[in-house]
Design a protein around this nucleic acid. Sequence first.
DNA 1: AGATTTTATGAAAACATTTGCATTACTATT
DNA 2: AATAGTAATGCAAATGTTTTCATAAAATCT
Lengths: 345, 345
Amino acid sequence: MSLKQGGKADIVDVARRARVSISTVSRSFNHPDLVNPATRKKIERAVQALGYIRNRAAQTMHGRRSGTIGLIVPTIDNAIFAEVIQSFSDAVDHAGFTLLIASHGFDLDREYAVLRKFLEHRVDGVALIGLDHSEPTFQLLDQQAVPVISIWNYEADSRISCVGAKNYDAGRMAAEHLVELGHRRIALVFPVTIGNDRARGRLGGAVEVLQDQGALPPEEWTIQSPYNIAEAKEACGALFDLPECPSAVLCGNDVIAQGVIYALLKRGLKVPEDVSVMGIGDFKGSKEMEPALTTIHFPAHEIGGLAGREMCQLIAQSEPPNKVASLIRTKCDIRLSARATCRAV
Amino acid sequence: MSLKQGGKADIVDVARRARVSISTVSRSFNHPDLVNPATRKKIERAVQALGYIRNRAAQTMHGRRSGTIGLIVPTIDNAIFAEVIQSFSDAVDHAGFTLLIASHGFDLDREYAVLRKFLEHRVDGVALIGLDHSEPTFQLLDQQAVPVISIWNYEADSRISCVGAKNYDAGRMAAEHLVELGHRRIALVFPVTIGNDRARGRLGGAVEVLQDQGALPPEEWTIQSPYNIAEAKEACGALFDLPECPSAVLCGNDVIAQGVIYALLKRGLKVPEDVSVMGIGDFKGSKEMEPALTTIHFPAHEIGGLAGREMCQLIAQSEPPNKVASLIRTKCDIRLSARATCRAV
DNA sequence: AGATTTTATGAAAACATTTGCATTACTATT
DNA sequence: AATAGTAATGCAAATGTTTTCATAAAATCT
């Protein structure tokens, strides 16, 4: 009975019950210092009694910020991004924003479609993974002048703000480590690189080092596999049934590395005694594996948190609307985590 | 120059450019069949030229659906939920909805706060994990009459719609399998169960079976550990340094199981020769492990997808607004996946 | 005590849409 | 050829807020 029949009370109901005008109610939410504490109390009571919940849509429509941030990722259910999504989410949540999320399965056209959808919802900002996006995506971003940040990759000349690391360096580091350990017979297991600049950068870096060393792997030692334990395990199986087996395997990321290790174990081969395995990413759990995975450490948690905070900053900067925020570029350091899956030969 | 100075065109601009009324423009979006194809073409061209993007906030405000669904989970960066989030996301995306997501870190008060925030955004529906929620949460849900679904657990007498499995059964199955294999010296590694009915159900089921067999583990064989490889590995270490070592370990989920396996490997103990390890959940990758993990299979992908589709159904049902949708309860089957980490003794 | 500033409130316009009702122009029916 | 029915469109009210401006009341200054 204290509730309106519909169950949904609006600001007018609150005003009526508190015997003040709607302006005062609105003010008591948005600029509490401008309204008499006693009045505020009355309003507070009315809100309680009616179970009133503010309608953000109405505020949004009025031209204010919507209080939402959109995050577009290739996939959610993947160790790579889960950590970065979590820390990004925490950071924007902490600043009072609500997160809209969607995945596109590495399809840049779907990415564009999702972006449009987010824009229809008038997100205050958008975060994307990597710097590889379709031209329409860039144009839309530009035209709508929405604050945008790219997570995971760093490029000094990126078209949009970014926070992340140089995947090219990661690829180099990984290959160099293997080479320093004396390996020359190195196989490569990477995902498809179109529309995936992280993988492309890593592979490019690794190949360059190997080329300099005259250790470029033959065709049959270059395996393609998605970021997925099962498929990686399956895909690289043939590798070890070959007459000449590589002494080390450099993997596109830790998930692939895990698949490779399982494939080796399954064949009764020992890591690192028979074959060394190198990952990239240093996902949660890679350190705890037995033997612990040698990999290139990416500070995923830090990258996600930084990206979230910088996103909020970009949004604050771009106030008033239409003021274009300046670009921010943050380079995060990566480093070799030499553990137990690679040995010198 | 074809763009409005602000960069943002509205429906009025489109109408003007297409030389029709705003009503017609609106209609051509929402009820295209009611407008002349030729007119629709004109409007389409105007939209293109102006780079117009519809404002969902305005539609929302008008009382229609917002086109958003809120998903509240304990954590995102965890193998347990990542898969279910992904499939739920895909399902609602497919139906044209946009997903709002937030995590609460197993804190039911934060869950309540997040729910409020989502309701401010006028989500068309809310999905929660499990059936353990604070009383204010249930009341708010009730009072706002928002379609809601619980994911992961099934209870015949749940207060809200649910799709999932019986965690109690999972716990029983796991314990029964171990008992059938002849194990009596069984250790338990589970997370804190307050506010986590999944863990509570599993533990309860397992304990009951063990009690019936007079195989209830002593205090020092009951370990507490969060869902986290590193902490599980660390936490159960002491277990194997004890004078009398258990012959099997039953874990709260597969992540914990993996931690336990690594702890064993680290001590030079073999799985399953020295100790059997049982997981619950059957996460992505558990099948590929070497040795492959014996676990209770939860159809996470199916649960998430079903939940997403049923959420959309509930929303459709609750049209017109204020019509309360009926409860839906779907029980998903779980089964033992006996693989290689448990052996008979 | 009168003038000036400050504090607290209200009225009404604005925001970008949707939709019920009214209107006009066709097409089909007798 | 008049009538009824249908298709396509426009007008204007409604949606739930925020905010500018105006006004009234109270506090401060001289």
